[in-house]
């Protein structure tokens, strides 16, 4: 058990009594009240808990919080700009009305934003590879793919 300090969405958070093996997912959800990162499988199979560590997508259910100390952590709650302007990926998700039940979509969006941060014009194969870790039980993949392509276009237009 130890006190750890985490940098979450640009803010330092002190969390007491964190066992060394406690996954980041449960620190975010139970201790910090950031419930947008969702629990699906607990074994990095479904991607519902995807967050960014230093910009890289990781499954928060399988990363100990102690291992995230010192890294910038970004969750779905930290994706929009401070003034509330949505990230281009979030905006594309709205425009394509991607979500059905919506439970997986935080994780899908985090994987998609990480992809577009390193690849401004992903091919369908790039999308398949980057999004393979995120299951959508409702089967919204057709719209996820379209939304990623259109977010990529929107982001390129800004440069």
């Amino acid at each position: 058990m130890s006190k750890i300090e985490l940098n979450v969405n640009g803010q330092w958070q002190t969390v007491d009594d964190v066992p060394p093996d406690m996954p980041l997912l449960w620190v975010l959800r139970d201790r910090l009240g950031l419930t947008g990162t969702r629990f699906g499988c607990g074994m990095a199979q479904c991607g519902a808990c995807t967050v960014h560590l230093e910009g890289n997508p990781v499954r928060a259910c399988s990363v100990p919080a102690s291992a995230a100390v010192g890294s910038r952590i970004t969750t779905i709650e930290g994706l929009a700009a401070a003034d509330g302007t949505l990230h281009a990926v979030q905006q594309a998700w709205l425009e394509h009305d991607v979500a059905q039940c919506g439970y997986c979509q935080s994780g899908q969006i985090m994987s998609a934003t990480a992809l577009l941060a390193r690849n401004s014009k992903p091919s369908d194969a790039d999308i398949d590879a980057a999004m393979a870790g995120n299951i959508c039980r409702c089967g919204t993949y057709v719209r996820i793919r379209k939304a990623i392509h259109s977010a990529a276009t929107a982001l390129r237009a800004r440069i």
Binding site: G33, L34, T35, G36, T37, R38, F39, T75, I76, E77, L79, A80, L86, Q90, W93, L94, E95, D97, A99, G102, Y103, Q105, S106, I109
Partner: peptide
């Protein structure tokens, strides 16, 4: 478009499992 789309893409508390 779905009425609660913005909540869904923003990670706002939405589901039973988000209730505290």
């Amino acid at each position: 478009r779905a009425t609660d789309g913005r909540d869904l893409v923003s990670g706002r508390p939405t589901y039973a499992s988000d209730v505290r």
